[in-house]
Design a binder for these strands. Structure first.
Lengths: 127, 127
DNA sequence: TCAATCCTCAACTATTTGGTTGAATATCGG
DNA sequence: CCGATATTCAACCAAATAGTTGAGGATTGA
């Protein structure tokens, strides 16, 4: 097993990977922004973009795989809505580094005092 | 010009893109974790990984392009250290969605009341 | 029924990514 | 100078991404 950090080479199944990847694209961030206002159907979401409907459909699939959106399939339309929990997870991860920009650490710092666990140790995912 | 959202098709120059992309890889997150403990030279950083030194060097370059690490080139060694500001930026972006998992909104919500600006409007980057 | 609408699937392309190996550059130390 | 160490550059490769077009499945509604 080689006492290595073993990061599961670019593991596509890791939730955090998927979320951060989803957020790394400006179109997808714009879609989330739009959905933060109200749920929308796919065509409505696609309309403002200078891009094919299919492209948007794929972006939505990416967001869906990251669990960042829900879909309500009523009839032929698919209503997408924001699902923010994974964003919260991402924020939790970032919070571990909060001490590096000072302040904001109270009882938190006690918890944080020992070491940062960034979720890349292989536990908690696909045994 | 078509009144479109104009998201600068997958703009690789956007700082937020680079940061979220950098965070989407578990090896890079592990490197940041390591650097959150103490600055390290490249060989030391690479050692725990089941991966070539070159691969780590490239990951470090990605982190560098996202401004997530600094390098102190003393002699033949390159000492890498964490630079957390961009993480803070990422957290700020995520904070805009905080209202979706309830609470934590005080004077913040006033600022947020109107609309979310997710940094994909094209301002502030490469004119 | 049948045309229009909404959306996804399939196939293709170009580009990026994440990894490799091998050579090159640069410094350190005898 | 010369060898060892530290790091990067260059070329290459496989796989994933982000986009396209075209076809097809469902649903709506006249």
């Amino acid at each position: 097993m080689k006492n290595q950090t073993q990061v599961k080479k670019t593991d596509p199944d890791d939730q955090l990977n998927r979320v951060f990847h989803a957020l790394s694209d400006p179109t997808r961030r714009a879609l989330l922004k739009r959905l933060s206002d109200a749920p929308e159907k796919v065509t409505a979401l696609a309309e403002p973009f200078d891009m094919s409907l299919n492209a948007i459909s794929k972006h939505l699939k990416t967001l869906e795989k990251a669990n960042l959106i829900n879909r309500d399939n009523t009839g032929r339309t698919s209503i997408c809505s924001l699902r923010a929990e994974p964003l919260h997870d991402a924020q939790d991860w970032l919070d571990q580094y909060a001490r590096f920009w000072g302040e904001t650490l109270d009882a938190f710092s006690l918890h944080m005092d020992k070491q940062i666990d960034d979720g890349t140790d292989g536990s908690g995912e696909k045994g």
